[in-house]
């Protein structure tokens, strides 16, 4: 298998899907002439032309609405948000239009659109550029929400997203773009709603998604080396649909769990996971399920404060030890 970056994996998925299906086109800010703010769409304008790689003004509502409208008549647009922090401008189009159209018109109009781009922070981008907010979208019936953490998952899931007949929120993470991993050759897809056990273990289940999966894997290695604690790391990959079976199967083995995400803790997606665990596996638990997440503060600029705001390997290690007490 080839080892490529997360960014290249996304680009491969876009390229292959555009070659496979003439209805697929890209729309977003700086994706064409400028080759993409994070270079995900590099070379695609030259390859597919300006009808299929559509540069836009800074108009997030317009971008989202245009993608939704085109999807309503059968095209398969992939709209890029420069970051999901800017998607806040387009939330009415995503929530009140993309997510509602199938239902409110009695199942007669589907909206096969993908909204993709980086979420999260960690590069001193401060309060307005560091949002995660996947729990907002996962809260909305009608949207699917996926958060791949590895190049292989990114490619396989972006293809699935593009072929899906429903609106998909495809959240990347800026810190993942340059990470590398093995990616299978040729055409493959990864279904939504299937979590991936990225590391097996018998003592504590760590549930994570997106970039924090890498943090969790590092923490698990360290705990194994230094303390002999074996953590099982579950990468959810997809939040809606959510694979509860994999989580519950693991908890019936470990009886202890920690949920990790970069979004704020208060009303974050971890709260939903914990609620479901206590609902379906209360008797399996030997300790309260803990959450490791961002502090409930606007993300600050200063390097030390920002580091303190985001979840760290040490935070995960501490939480694992606490559930083992």
């Amino acid at each position: 298998m080839a080892v490529i970056t997360y960014r290249e994996a996304l680009r491969q998925a876009l390229t292959e899907e555009m070659e496979r299906d003439p209805n697929v086109f890209l729309v977003g800010e700086e994706i064409g002439r400028y080759q993409g703010t994070f270079r995900v769409t590099e070379g695609l304008l030259q390859r597919f032309g300006e009808m299929r790689v559509v540069d836009t003004p800074i108009s997030e509502s317009g971008i989202a609405g245009m993608a939704i409208g085109a999807a309503m008549i059968g095209l398969r647009p992939v709209a890029e948000f420069m970051t999901f922090s800017f998607a806040l401008i387009a939330v009415d189009q995503i929530v009140n239009h993309a997510a509602k159209i199938l239902y409110m018109f009695g199942g007669q109009i589907s909206v096969p659109v993908v909204f993709r781009g980086p979420a999260g922070g960690g590069a001193q981008l401060s309060a307005q550029h560091s949002h995660s907010l996947e729990s907002w979208y996962a809260h909305i019936p009608g949207l699917k929400v996926v958060t791949p953490a590895t190049p292989a998952d990114a490619k396989g899931m972006l293809k699935t997203a593009i072929r899906d007949d429903n609106p998909v929120i495809f959240m990347e993470h800026a810190k993942l773009y340059s990470t590398r991993g093995e990616v299978p050759e040729g055409d493959y897809t990864i279904p939504f709603g299937v979590a991936d056990v990225k590391r097996e273990g018998s003592d504590v289940t760590i549930i994570a998604y997106s970039q924090p999966v890498l943090l969790a894997l590092h923490a698990a290695e360290k705990l194994a080396e230094t303390e002999g604690i074996q953590c099982e790391v579950i990468d959810l990959r997809s939040l809606q649909p959510l694979d509860m079976e994999t989580i519950l199967r693991s908890i019936s083995k470990t009886h202890r769990a920690v949920v990790v995400h970069e979004d704020h803790r208060n009303v974050g997606f971890g709260a939903e996971i914990v609620a479901r665990i206590q609902e379906f596996a209360f008797d399996e638990l030997d300790a309260p399920v803990l959450r490791v997440a961002s502090a409930d503060v606007p993300i600050p600029y200063a390097r030390n404060l920002e580091r303190a705001a985001f979840p760290s390997e040490e935070d995960i290690i501490r939480a694992v030890k606490r559930v083992l007490v």
Partner: peptide, 24 residues
């Protein structure tokens, strides 16, 4: 007829997408 919409102005960006699809 691709729908009546309840958010004031919300269908105007959709129309641009429908128009873009026609051109496409």
């Amino acid at each position: 007829f691709l729908g009546g919409y309840g958010i004031v102005g919300g269908m105007v960006p959709l129309a641009v997408g429908i128009g873009y699809g026609i051109r496409y």
